[in-house]
């Protein structure tokens, strides 16, 4: 394995693990579509941060992402709880509007030739991430996309480890958590901002649609295998790593985009696990 391959895989794995951990909670709480919505509706935040700072490498991007992640959940709640619109429609209206707003802002304020077009937003490309190396005192210390996602990954790990009990309670029984005095809506907002920051940090390399795949597919697979939250998180992380490595080699094998191949591999792993579980059940019932 060459150095470039290693760097690409490292970036993919860090993004994948961040998504897998967050995704377990999304799947358990049945709010995956809110995560999906957030991954699309951070676009105006990215656009504004990009216009203000004229590049991607900025803490403004993080702030913009967090703000728009929170705004998305607030608008969805406003439609659903205050205006009494059914939940699926509230989610659908909110994220399409914010995405449309993002595209409009981009075309209004930038020339047509920017790095920030719908193409990049939707697809992203992992395998070019090694091009942007950071070199300090002649030592290679990683790529830019790795150093964008790595701090986020650390924050997520610390957040989940420190707040595990609270998150566990909220995931399985929100009402009970409330009665225990846990500030559910605050936890929600923090959690959703983490989701939106993760999405934004992986935008360039994975794209908005495929990042949802990393958020949902490994956790869904793990959920089929286990009901224990801790086990679920570890299984999801393992599956993600496996999918990254397999997807990477597959993408070289048939010479296609790596980020989509990783998701396709995740999906194939999911169906293998599903088939395995069904088979096990069938054998059991025959006995």
């Amino acid at each position: 394995m060459s150095l470039n391959d290693f760097l690409t895989l490292l970036t993919a794995a860090t993004i994948g693990l961040s998504c897998a951990i967050l995704g377990c909670f999304l799947v358990l709480r049945k709010v995956v579509m809110v995560g999906d919505a957030i991954s699309h509706s951070v676009l105006p935040g990215i656009a504004i941060a990009y216009i203000v700072s004229a590049n991607f490498n900025s803490s403004l991007l993080l702030i913009g992402a967090a703000i728009f992640g929170v705004i998305t959940t607030l608008i969805i709640d406003f439609f659903h709880k205050k205006l009494k619109l059914q939940e699926d429609a509230s989610i659908g209206i909110t994220f399409t509007w914010l995405f449309a707003l993002g595209v409009i802002i981009i075309t209004l304020f930038t020339e047509s030739n920017t790095d920030l077009d719908q193409d990049c937003v939707l697809f992203g490309e992992l395998s070019s991430s090694f091009l942007d190396k950071i070199i300090m005192n002649d030592y290679l210390i990683g790529t830019r996309s790795f150093w964008m996602i790595f701090p986020v990954f650390l924050i997520i790990v610390i957040f989940v480890v420190r707040g595990f009990k609270g998150l566990l309670l909220i995931s399985f029984n929100e009402e009970y958590a409330k009665s225990k005095g846990i500030h559910v809506s605050m936890w929600n907002l923090i959690f959703m901002s983490l989701v939106s920051i993760t999405t934004v940090m992986s935008f360039e390399s994975v794209g908005a649609v495929l990042v949802v795949g990393l958020l949902v597919i490994p956790p869904a697979t793990a959920y089929i295998l286990s009901n224990d939250l801790k086990k679920m998180i570890f299984i999801a992380c393992g599956l993600t790593l496996l999918a990254c490595i397999l997807g990477f080699y597959f993408s070289i094998l048939i010479d296609v985009s790596m980020s989509s191949m990783v998701i396709v591999t995740c999906g194939m792993l999911f169906f293998s696990v599903l088939a395995y579980e069904k088979l096990k059940k069938m054998l059991k019932s025959k006995k």
Binding site: V32, M33, D36, L210, G213, I217, Y223, V264, G267, F270
Partner: peptide, 20 residues
Amino acid sequence: LSEDTAIAFVSTFFFAIGSV
């Protein structure tokens, strides 16, 4: 799996196949 998980799963999985 709940409906929202299934929907998100299918949309990204198919989209990924498509972009491959």
